[in-house]
């Protein structure tokens, strides 16, 4: 198993109720697997900010791994390691 940290920003933080938490995944897990796990375990309010439809990650969700943005299209190819920090940032436009 690997252990990583997930940071929730903006509406996802509101939906999840915490700013960050640790998460466990099998060795060799990808970013896509993390999103699937989060959507499956934290309810519809969290899931809707992660997925636009079944299997389709919200195209405008910003995701960073260790401070570098990763395209949602790369989520299936992005391997995660123990100690990684994954930041999930729904778009905001308050002005």
């Amino acid at each position: 198993m690997i252990e990583l940290r997930v940071q929730y920003l903006a509406q996802l933080r509101t939906a999840r109720g915490v700013a960050d938490e640790s998460c466990h995944l099998p060795e060799g897990a990808t970013l896509a697997q993390l999103l699937t796990q989060l959507a499956g375990t934290h309810g519809a309010e969290v899931a809707k900010h992660l997925y636009a439809a079944a299997g389709v990650v919200q195209p405008s969700l910003m995701i960073a791994v260790n401070g570098t943005a990763i395209s949602v299209r790369q989520s299936s190819q992005t391997l995660l390691r123990s100690g990684d920090v994954v930041t999930l940032m729904p778009p905001i436009a308050g002005g």
Partner: peptide, 27 residues
């Protein structure tokens, strides 16, 4: 901004990402 959070991006055309790079679809 949203709630107690804020974000800032500077777009310099041709040198940095623009908003369409970050948001391929209108959220």
């Amino acid at each position: 901004m949203y709630d107690l959070e804020g974000r800032l991006i500077t777009v310099r055309p041709g040198r940095t990402p623009c908003l369409d790079c970050l948001y391929p679809e209108s959220p």
